[in-house]
Amino acid sequence: MAKANTTIKGRGAQSAHVPDRFGLAQRHTDGDWRDVMETLDGPPVKLRTTVTEEHPKTIISFNRSPDIPFDRSINAYRGCEHGCVYCFARPTHAYHDLSPGLDFETKLFAKPDAARLLRQTLARPNYRPRPIAMGTNTDPYQPIEQTYRITRELLEVCNDTGHPVTITTKSDRVLHDIDLLSEMAARRLVAVAISVTSLDPVLSGKLEPRAAAPEKRMLALETLARAGIPTHCSISPVIPAITDEFMEDIITRAAAAGVKRCGWIPLRLPHEVGPLFREWLDIHYPQRAKKVMGIVQSIRNGRDNDPEFFSRMKPDGIWAELFRSRFRLACRRAGINTEQFELDCAQFRRPHTGGQLSLI
């Protein structure tokens, strides 16, 4: 774990934090040996981001969760360089013997075969279209998308086949594909959600160090909305006593930008995210840490996290009801809708993947 008052700049997590729920060996640096190495070689080398290409056999993940509005998703990347310390997807790195802490944001995986695999799946005779959610686990527009363009390729497949898709991101890099998104939006094939956690760039720099600054996200929302693309502002996560003060202003700004819909999601701390977030609090907000976690536990039935369906997304208690009431009132004043966008599945046509052409 990182030492108190020691910050790893440019990263959200402040330690590797290897989980013990899979029986993995813990990583420890011997103090004496570390001092000797620093004397001989100097301070540790700055953390670098590495990308490994992986080649899965399938690309769509299906789920039967009753409390989320989609049943299938695609993640072009594994791990996320944005480094959001609160990210509920961090524990997925533990399945691969990697740390949900620093490894999650520095050891990334890209899936360059994603578009080809998607075409293969959509071509199956028994495939039935429903909106594909992108950005549900890791951000499809994180920095390495600039090089790999996997998200762009996936959108091209969806556009070619008339398949609807939803996108969630914290990056204004989504504007690089505004030409394609505009074309899809005209056919009711796409909706884009941009997550805005706060309006304070300093705070955002601590919470989500490599994500776009708040002003860039607000500008991206406005640009998408003006282009006629169904745009949703997601205020997530709402962190008690840290980011909840921005809720009303974010909604007001979103409405002024032409955004028609907003939503909010309370902070979730599953598995290793809890210790990582507590460590972050101890470093950045030590005087507020007890209050923050006290409110978190009050809306999660006395626990850091509630894993149960429905209640994990809809916390209980006085504080939860306060946040809920504030959100509803702010949306009403701003003329913001809280419903999901309806996309069109009727335009779907199976792609041709080789062999004899269909006569139908």
Score class of each variant (00 low, 15 high):
residue 269 L to Q: 09
residue 236 S to P: 12
residue 269 L to G: 01
residue 311 S to I: 11
residue 243 T to N: 11
residue 310 F to E: 13
residue 300 R to Q: 00
residue 313 M to N: 13
residue 255 A to T: 01
residue 321 E to G: 05
residue 254 A to Q: 06
residue 280 W to L: 00
residue 287 Q to E: 15
residue 253 R to I: 01
residue 275 P to F: 00
residue 293 M to Y: 08
residue 244 D to G: 04
residue 244 D to E: 12
residue 309 F to Y: 13
residue 267 L to E: 00
residue 265 I to C: 11
residue 264 W to C: 07
residue 284 H to D: 11
residue 278 R to E: 14
residue 254 A to C: 07
residue 293 M to C: 12
residue 285 Y to H: 15
residue 290 K to V: 15
residue 284 H to C: 08
residue 275 P to T: 04
residue 250 I to R: 00
residue 258 G to E: 05
residue 311 S to L: 13
residue 300 R to T: 04
residue 285 Y to K: 05
residue 320 A to S: 07
residue 301 N to K: 11
residue 316 D to I: 15
residue 286 P to S: 07
residue 284 H to A: 09
residue 238 V to E: 04
residue 251 I to M: 09
residue 268 R to N: 10
residue 293 M to I: 12
residue 274 G to H: 13
residue 266 P to K: 10
residue 314 K to H: 15
residue 286 P to I: 07
residue 294 G to L: 10
residue 268 R to T: 10
residue 236 S to V: 10
residue 261 R to W: 02
residue 315 P to S: 01
residue 269 L to V: 03
residue 257 A to T: 04
residue 247 M to W: 04
residue 252 T to Q: 15
residue 289 A to L: 06
residue 262 C to R: 10
residue 278 R to K: 14
residue 286 P to M: 09
residue 263 G to P: 11
residue 311 S to M: 09
residue 294 G to S: 07
residue 247 M to D: 00
residue 286 P to R: 01
residue 301 N to L: 09
residue 301 N to T: 05
residue 299 I to Y: 01
residue 263 G to Y: 10
residue 235 I to T: 06
residue 239 I to T: 02
residue 276 L to V: 04
residue 259 V to F: 04
residue 248 E to I: 08
residue 293 M to L: 15
residue 284 H to W: 14
residue 287 Q to S: 13
residue 320 A to L: 04
residue 245 E to N: 12
residue 256 A to C: 09
residue 270 P to G: 07
residue 248 E to S: 09
residue 299 I to T: 04
residue 255 A to F: 02
residue 249 D to I: 09
residue 244 D to F: 06
residue 266 P to G: 08
residue 317 G to E: 01
residue 253 R to A: 01
residue 319 W to P: 13
residue 253 R to E: 05
residue 305 N to R: 07
residue 279 E to R: 07
residue 290 K to M: 08
residue 319 W to R: 12
residue 318 I to D: 12
residue 286 P to L: 07
residue 255 A to P: 00
residue 245 E to I: 08
residue 262 C to G: 05
residue 265 I to G: 11
residue 309 F to H: 14
residue 280 W to C: 06
residue 292 V to L: 04
residue 264 W to T: 08
residue 276 L to W: 06
residue 275 P to I: 03
residue 298 S to T: 08
residue 249 D to Y: 06
residue 286 P to F: 09
residue 276 L to N: 00
residue 266 P to H: 14
residue 255 A to I: 02
residue 272 E to Q: 14
residue 316 D to T: 14
residue 250 I to Y: 02
residue 302 G to E: 09
residue 248 E to Q: 11
residue 288 R to V: 11
residue 280 W to T: 04
residue 286 P to A: 03
residue 267 L to H: 04
residue 286 P to Q: 05
residue 282 D to C: 08
residue 259 V to Y: 00
residue 310 F to L: 08
residue 303 R to S: 12
residue 264 W to L: 11
residue 277 F to H: 01
residue 313 M to R: 12
residue 240 P to W: 00
residue 271 H to I: 11
residue 268 R to L: 14
residue 301 N to D: 14
residue 280 W to I: 05
residue 317 G to L: 02
residue 312 R to Q: 15
residue 294 G to C: 12
residue 255 A to L: 00
residue 244 D to N: 07
residue 258 G to L: 03
residue 260 K to A: 14
residue 290 K to T: 15
residue 267 L to N: 05
residue 245 E to P: 05
residue 275 P to K: 06
residue 267 L to M: 08
residue 234 S to F: 06
residue 319 W to G: 03
residue 238 V to L: 13
